[in-house]
């Protein structure tokens, strides 16, 4: 019992059952790959009547819609339980993070509940995406000035 905190933590971590990483990776690959292949199909379909950029945007919107709907009917989390990063990393994961947070906060009202908490998980993604972009923009601006 006279174990200090560090050695107890090491002992507990060492004996803790590990996630089945190999199995998880296979599932992530298959689900993630499938979502991307579907996206590719949608893109080629949309490109029959849209410009490439607009088709790409519409593909994202379609996936976001499907993921939000599956979240609402309570199926997304059951798929994600197996798919892991396979549904998290594609844009579907972003959509699920937004929709599940919004749905979760419904009981606390639509302004400070849904309105504020919709960003709980997605907020950091937007914040750091935009910030990293802005830093890149400043660097790019300075580089172009020097190049001139």
């Amino acid at each position: 019992m006279q174990m200090d905190k560090n050695s107890y933590k090491k002992y507990a971590d060492a004996r803790a059952k590990k996630s089945p990483c190999a199995k998880n990776c296979v599932c992530a690959f298959l689900f993630g790959g499938l979502i991307c292949a579907i996206a590719q199909g949608l893109k080629e379909l949309y490109m029959t009547f849209l410009k490439e950029d607009d088709a790409g945007t519409l593909v994202s919107v379609t996936l976001i819609f499907i993921a939000a709907l599956l979240t609402g009917v309570g199926i997304f989390d059951r798929i994600a339980k197996h798919a892991g990063a396979g549904t998290l990393v594609p844009i579907t994961g972003f959509s699920n993070a937004v929709a599940s947070s919004a749905l979760d906060a419904k009981g606390e009202g639509f302004v400070l509940g849904v309105g504020a908490k919709i960003f709980t998980i997605a907020g950091p993604v937007i914040l750091y995406g935009i910030t990293a972009g802005a830093i890149y923009g400043v660097i790019y601006y300075i580089v172009t000035l020097i190049m001139k």
Partner: peptide, 25 residues
Amino acid sequence: GITAAAAGIAAALIFGLLVAICFRD
């Protein structure tokens, strides 16, 4: 940045709100 990401963010937020209106967890 936000201009480029606008469609994705707006879609996720609006669909998220609709989900919250239509369903229960």
